[in-house]
Design a protein around this nucleic acid. Structure first.
Length: 380
DNA sequence: CGTGTTTGACCTGCGC
DNA sequence: GCGCAGGTCAAACACG
């Protein structure tokens, strides 16, 4: 971190300096200080990003080590059970097992309905199995390479995703059209959280631009736009999950930020970017990326759904995922809290931070935290 | 006065 | 083509 270089701004006082000269020098000094301060802020931001990447890498390495110890992991990728789904499909993935997986009756119906869909479905299933086998065999070095590739994917995706008008104008070529449209489809990441306050503090600034009562749900849905940058395309929708449980909210994120994020938001952004990458990168790489989601959200259920309009990853913060946990060391457990912030003192700080996503107190997450702590103490 | 919220109107995609 | 529903716009309003 740069020290503010006030020392270099001092000039020897010669006793003959006029008032205007002093003012000029003062202004120059102020300008210098301001400049250094800005640079300092930039460096802080950069450091935050690096720290976050480091934590992600650490998670990956510990996960790979765990896999090498022969731990059996069951990663359950459920078809989203939200009302947006046309049909619920359960795809179960098991490490080190056959890629032949059970398919629900509903999916079987769909598969029978179309040979093309069957073909696609088969490809998808086999590629999922392959992806996990590769994951299982990878060593730490290749894992790092994989991470780098993923970062590139996300960068490419950021270039790809633009406004709806751009999407319209980009639909000319026939052969590439389908692929382009697939990649340009807006990927959504849903976060279900239990919280009294619907305005989940996820580290970003949001501006509400609309509210609508959906036909299927009498409770209004609020529409927010990221206000951290004037052109940021990211939007989110917040809707209560049910009339009975008014503390449960479904927050849907859409798009990628075009600006640096604060520390609190970087982890979730990385996870959602990975999710977006998963759903936009096609079948061959999606499985590997879906596995990576369990790195970003190792302690919660997440599900993946693909409707025609919006591929969606749903992260359920109301359902902690115990089956997916690694043998926790004190360092690996830190991923439950952002690296720059130590776990809050339970009695004073009412903010919980699940991998960068914060929910404001009063929360029903107290019991969740207690369970996490129990697990931690049990495994130490 | 600047910024955020509310809310009715409008746009757009989709199913029939 | 029409109607419906979800999503967005933008003027009016509230608030600090």
């Amino acid at each position: 971190m740069i020290k503010e270089e006030t020392v270099s701004c001092y000039q020897p006082f010669d006793g003959v300096m006029g008032e205007s000269d002093k003012e000029e020098e003062l202004d120059a000094t102020k300008a210098k200080v301001e400049k250094v301060r800005e640079e300092n802020e930039k460096l802080k931001l950069l450091l935050s990003t690096i720290l976050n990447n480091y934590n992600s890498l650490q998670m990956h390495v510990s996960e790979v080590l765990r896999q090498q110890q022969g731990a059996s992991i069951e990663l359950e990728v459920d078809r989203d059970q939200s009302e947006d789904n046309d049909f619920g499909v359960d795809i179960s993935l098991r490490l080190g097992r056959s890629s032949e997986q059970t398919i629900s009756r509903k999916e079987e119906k769909v598969v029978k309905a179309s040979d093309e869909k069957e073909e696609r479905s088969k490809k998808k299933r086999s590629s999922l199995g392959l992806g996990f086998q590769i994951q299982n065999c990878e060593d730490s070095t290749s894992k790092l390479d994989y991470l780098c590739r993923q970062v590139k994917n996300v960068n490419a995706e950021n270039k790809c995703v633009s406004s709806r008008k751009d999407v319209k104008s980009a639909t000319n070529e026939n052969h590439q059209e389908e692929h382009e449209q697939t990649s340009l489809k807006k990927t959504r990441v849903c976060v279900k959280a239990t919280c009294e306050d619907p305005s989940i503090n996820d580290g970003c600034q949001w501006r509400k631009y609309g509210q609508k009562t959906a036909k299927t749900n009498p409770l209004p849905r609020a529409y927010y736009r990221c206000s951290m940058s004037s052109n940021c395309p990211v939007r989110k929708q917040v809707q209560r999950c049910g009339e009975e449980d008014t503390s449960a909210f479904m927050t849907t994120y859409e798009g990628n930020h075009d600006h640096p994020l604060p520390m609190e938001a970087t982890h979730m952004a990385a996870g959602t970017s990975a999710a977006a990458s998963l759903l936009q990168s096609g079948s061959s790489s999606s499985s590997t990326t879906s596995a990576s989601l369990s790195y970003y959200f190792p302690y919660h259920h997440f599900s993946i759904s693909t409707t025609n309009a919006h591929p969606t990853v749903t992260l359920d913060l109301t359902r902690p995922n115990y089956t997916n946990q690694s043998p926790i060391s004190s360092s690996s457990f830190s991923l439950n809290f952002s690296s720059s912030e130590p776990p809050p003192p339970s009695s004073q700080d009412h903010t919980l931070n699940f991998g960068g996503l914060r929910t404001q107190a009063p929360l029903n997450t107290d019991s969740l935290m207690a369970r996490y702590r129990m697990r931690l103490s049990g495994q130490q």
